[in-house]
Design a protein around this nucleic acid. Structure first.
Lengths: 140, 140
DNA sequence: TGCCTTCTTTAGAACGGCTCTAATCTGTTG
DNA sequence: CAACAGATTAGAGCCGTTCTAAAGAAGGCA
């Protein structure tokens, strides 16, 4: 009963990120990080918080998500115009995107090799390499 | 003076796609395909059409862009939440995305190797593999 | 403990990109 | 040239997200 214990961690996690551990942020952090890797939209998370009897406004959900992204605890994944996903897995990895259902699935970073990448333009550096494999029903 | 001549092609291009060559569609097709590979947003294209004294509504720009995507003549690129880019290069290739300016740069398909890709879930097939290399000012 | 400052939360308005609607217009076919 | 299907349009509407200004909580310090 130790290791990456979730409950106590939400507090530390927020403190380490320099965020005051408020009721709302604690609840959101737990919803996000207590169940392993997740891909949630702001609205989903908001719904879960409400369902868990934690009244949080949508604005706060967005604020918190962006703060966690800023702290490197969350990653924003863009696969769909007009909707952002937030990924609790911040390790090096990529995604399958199921176009029909809008679901995301992780692909471990070591399961894909991206090689032979050209150098970025002068004065710029690579921030991230995103591989999105769009999949759909077989035989379209 | 032959080959992929632009002007005459706009007509053919639309007919081959099963789209009536209307004034608006012809103008948009020329703006899109007469200058080599481009990455445009709907609003950009709309602005160009207006500037070229071709009165087109934004709704028509969207309609036309989607029809061209459906015909395989254009490709939608999603890198930014809340804004779509349309890419006139439909060959196999990938992108640099300059986060500061919002610009896209093509990377030829043969300049990147994506290998060792896991099989997609049963009953699904890969539709496309998108690699987006996000770049920013050096030394962040 | 209570006060004070700072940070956080909030409802609701606002925003931006995109889509829809229903009326008008234009290409095309016979 | 008539007539119909398809295309265009202005403007309203939609949806995810952000902004605003005011009220509310955390934490520090006397």
């Amino acid at each position: 009963m130790s290791g990456s214990r979730p409950f106590a961690n939400a507090l530390e996690l927020l403190r380490d990120a320099g965020l005051r551990p408020t009721r709302q942020r604690l609840a959101l952090a737990r919803l996000l990080f207590d169940r392993g890797d997740r891909h949630v939209t702001a609205e989903q998370l908001h719904g879960e918080a409400i369902a868990a009897a934690v009244p949080v406004s949508l604005a706060t959900v967005y604020n918190t998500l962006h703060q966690l992204v800023g702290a490197g605890l969350l990653r924003e994944v863009v696969v769909n115009p007009g909707r952002s996903y937030f990924d609790t897995n911040v390790s090096d990895h990529h995604h399958f995107f199921l176009e029909e259902s809008g679901r995301l699935l992780d692909i471990p970073g070591d399961r894909i090799d991206v090689s032979n990448v050209p150098a970025p333009p002068a004065g710029t550096a690579i921030r991230r390499v995103d591989v999105v494999i769009r999949i759909g029903r077989e035989a379209d």
